Amino acid sequence: MTDQQAEARSYLSEEMIAEFKAAFDMFDADGGGDISVKELGTVMRMLGQTPTKEELDAIIEEVDEDGSGTIDFEEFLVMMVRQ
């Protein structure tokens, strides 16, 4: 866990972390443990947004600390705390 990830967790109660985990699992449609650009786009479109591929890439790049091209749960928490 990076310093950013530990800091993000410090702002959240266990209840909030559990709620974010449920949301993360909804995004992680294939159950792979991370959110891909495609999965992020699908959920955002379900919520009425129309992000471009470039916008989706930028969202993932902003929090993808390990350079995997996807968002894992710890990175997702950082993203949610920043919102």
Rank of each mutant, 00 (worst) to 15 (best):
K38H: 12
E15Q: 12
M1E: 09
F76L: 04
A6E: 09
D30A: 07
T2V: 07
E54V: 09
Q83A: 15
Q4R: 13
E62V: 08
M46H: 06
F27I: 11
E75D: 05
D57M: 10
E14A: 09
E75T: 13
T2C: 01
T52G: 12
M1H: 15
G48L: 01
L77E: 05
F73D: 00
M26N: 14
A6I: 14
M79V: 14
V81F: 03
F27T: 04
E75R: 13
Q5L: 09
R45K: 09
E14Y: 06
E55W: 05
V78Q: 14
Q83N: 05
G41V: 04
A23K: 14
F76A: 02
E65K: 02
G69W: 02
I35C: 01
E61M: 07
A29V: 08
E55Q: 15
D25L: 04
D28T: 15
T50G: 10
E19S: 08
F73S: 00
Q5Y: 07
D28G: 08
A23W: 06
I35A: 01
A18R: 10
E39N: 12
A8Q: 06
D64M: 15
S68G: 15
D28C: 12
S13H: 10
V63K: 15
A18Y: 15
E61R: 09
Q49M: 10
M79G: 09
D30M: 10
I59V: 09
D64W: 08
E61T: 11
M1T: 11
A8T: 13
F76I: 01
E7Y: 06
L40A: 13
S68M: 04
D64L: 10
G33K: 02
E14N: 07
E55C: 03
S10N: 15
G33E: 05
A22C: 04
D66A: 08
D28V: 10
E74W: 03
G67M: 15
M44L: 12
I59M: 14
D57N: 07
M79T: 13
E15A: 07
V63I: 15
E54W: 06
G33T: 03
D64T: 11
A29K: 15
E75I: 04
V43G: 00
G69F: 02
E7K: 15
P51E: 02
Q83I: 13
D34S: 13
D72L: 10
M80Y: 05
S68Y: 07
A23R: 07
G48Q: 10
L77A: 07
I17R: 08
F20H: 01
G31E: 03
S10C: 03
A29M: 10
T52F: 01
G67N: 10
D25P: 01
I59K: 05
I59W: 09
A8H: 02
S10L: 07
V37R: 04
M1N: 13
A29H: 07
A8Y: 06
E14D: 14
E61F: 06
G48I: 01
T50N: 09
M46V: 09
E74R: 03
L77K: 07
E74L: 01
F76P: 00
K38M: 04
Q83W: 15
P51H: 09
E54L: 06
F73T: 00
E14S: 07
D25E: 08
M80I: 07
D3Y: 11
R9V: 06
G32Y: 02
Q4K: 03
R9E: 10
F20E: 00
A29L: 14
A29E: 14
I17K: 10
L47S: 05
G31T: 03
G31I: 03
D30L: 04
I17M: 08
I71D: 00
E7D: 09
T70L: 14
R82P: 05
G41A: 12
V78I: 13
E55L: 06
E54C: 12
M16F: 03
M79Q: 12
I59G: 05
G33H: 01
M44C: 04
E62Q: 04
G67Q: 05
M16R: 11
